[in-house]
């Protein structure tokens, strides 16, 4: 009989604990423990990130040298490509100065976790409610490239949904145009597409796509990527274009959250 009561008590206690966990009773305690463990997690994930990134860069550099040697040997200098890169460089330099006069302030954050699977692409950053981070705010790389938006926030941490995630949506325009051209939708596996492009928009391959600025917390002219393939028939009302994101989303170590300057905490 006593044994039976023991089991009932145990199962009842477990169910009560689960319900209390779901209801968020333990959230303040979790926040305290998280705040205490965050420096260790930040340090270890930063160290691992640097280590992996340096290995990847070394491999990439070897591949680049090989590619350049092949090019030199075949004496094929692509003048048009160089001009395009020059234009791209100009636009990126323009972006670097963006924060000065945009009315936005940036909060630097370290990437402390990531979940980049086939259809899902999120990162965890070490900034949260206490840093005045809000849902929907744009997140950019150190170079000013748009990578995604804040999706979940807690006291000390936030989740960023990257632009290649299947649930990611952001309005976009072409770099040299003022009007909205379509919506950049994530397709998973590191890819994104620009959808709902009006047929008469006159888009061409290799055009740079930037944020349109129609969303309240995403400023305009943040570089998203470049169009590398356009799909659709002449009779179709809308076209679709594949976008190649500029940011290396699997190698992010530091990012910046853009928040309106008015939300900057007063010291």
């Amino acid at each position: 009989m006593l044994q039976r009561y023991k089991w009932i008590l145990l199962i009842g206690g477990l169910i009560a604990l689960i319900l209390l966990t779901i209801s968020g009773v333990f959230s303040p305690l979790s926040d305290v423990i998280r705040a205490g463990s965050l420096p260790v997690v930040r340090f270890v994930s930063g160290g691992t990130g640097y280590f992996i990134s340096s290995i990847k860069n070394a491999t990439d550099e070897d591949a680049k040298v090989e590619e350049l040697e092949t090019r030199i040997q075949s004496l094929q200098v692509d003048y048009v490509r160089l001009k395009a890169l020059e234009e791209e460089n100009k636009s990126l330099r323009a972006q670097a100065g963006f924060l000065d006069d945009s009315g936005y302030d940036n909060v630097g954050a370290r990437v402390i976790g990531r979940e980049i699977k086939d259809r899902q692409a999120y990162i965890l950053i070490d900034r949260g409610l206490k840093d005045h981070v809000e849902l929907g705010q744009a997140v950019i790389t150190e170079d000013g490239l748009f990578i995604g938006k804040i999706d979940q926030i807690q006291e000390h941490i936030s989740v960023v949904t990257l632009l290649t995630d299947v649930d990611s949506r952001v309005t976009a325009k072409l770099i040299d145009k003022r009007e909205l051209i379509g919506i950049v939708e994530g397709r998973g596996n590191g890819t994104a597409v620009l959808t709902f492009i009006p047929n008469n928009a006159g888009i061409v391959k290799d055009t740079i796509v930037v944020t349109a600025g129609t969303e309240s917390k995403v400023p305009p002219n943040l570089v998203i990527g470049v169009i590398n393939k356009i799909e659709g028939e002449e009779t179709d009302p809308f076209l679709t274009a594949s976008i190649e994101p500029y940011a290396l989303l699997d190698r992010l170590l530091f990012v910046s959250v853009l928040r309106p300057s008015v939300l900057r905490p007063r010291l």
Binding site: V41, V44, S45, T48, I52, I112, G113, R114, I116
Partner: peptide
């Protein structure tokens, strides 16, 4: 715990 949170997700898939 530290391995599963910080190291493992940073490694190539």
């Amino acid at each position: 715990g530290v391995w599963e949170i910080s190291v493992r997700p940073s490694l190539p898939s």
